[in-house]
Simulated scan of single mutants.
Amino acid sequence: AWIMEHAFGLHNWKIVPTTDINTTFALALSIWLLMLFFNVKVKGFGGWMHELFCTPFGKNPLLWLLNLLFNFIEYVSKPLSHSLRLFGNIYAGEIIFLLLGMWAATGVSGTIFGAILGAGWAIFHILIVTLQAFIFMMLTVVYLSMAHESH
């Protein structure tokens, strides 16, 4: 087991890949780049710039900076919230598995209760992982469909 772990680097592998923030951020960043691509493709570069400077407060040049600030916050927050939501929920589930495992190491009664609770949590965790994948997919659909619409 030691040879497999250290020779092949298996200690770096995770059961659920989205417990690594780099994975979830790469997924969210790819969606963000697609969102930018479709914004420019559908609206044209000029239409996208018009939307950046004139939405949500209108075409008054005095409001361009405020509009750009709001749109900048929106464009920065989308990949951050998209990635951190997935990472946080999946990582929390893995931490609960670790806590149950530590409880199981406390003795015979801890082993029995840890095994029962661990089995229950495993079933619940499968539902959570599926739900989080669905939420990530739905947010992807929403973000990409928003790139095809005008304000």
Rank of each mutant, 00 (worst) to 15 (best):
K78I: 11
A1M: 14
F134A: 14
E5F: 02
S83G: 14
S81A: 11
W32P: 00
T140Y: 01
A133H: 09
V76T: 09
G88E: 01
L68C: 14
S77W: 07
I135R: 08
G118Y: 08
A115R: 06
N22I: 12
L80N: 05
L33D: 00
L68W: 12
F37C: 05
L62P: 00
E51A: 11
W13M: 12
P17K: 07
I126H: 07
I3R: 05
L29N: 12
G9E: 08
D20Q: 12
H82S: 01
H82N: 07
E74L: 09
I31L: 15
T130L: 13
K43Q: 13
E149F: 02
S150F: 07
L99H: 01
K43L: 12
K59R: 13
L84R: 05
T24A: 06
G107A: 08
V142I: 14
E74S: 10
V42L: 04
P17Y: 06
T19Y: 03
T111I: 02
W48L: 02
A7D: 06
L144W: 01
M49V: 13
G44M: 03
L69F: 15
L98C: 00
L80V: 14
E149L: 07
S81T: 12
V108S: 06
I116F: 09
G107S: 08
F38C: 01
G47C: 02
I123P: 01
E149R: 07
I128M: 06
W13E: 15
A26C: 11
T106S: 13
H151S: 01
H6M: 08
L86H: 04
I126V: 13
A26P: 03
I95K: 08
L99E: 01
L36R: 05
N71V: 10
L68T: 12
A119D: 05
W48R: 01
I96H: 00
I90W: 01
G110Q: 06
S81N: 11
C54W: 02
L10I: 05
E5K: 13
S81V: 10
L98W: 00
L33H: 01
L127G: 13
A105L: 11
L33G: 04
T23I: 15
E74V: 02
L98V: 03
F97D: 02
Y143A: 11
A7P: 01
L84K: 05
W32E: 10
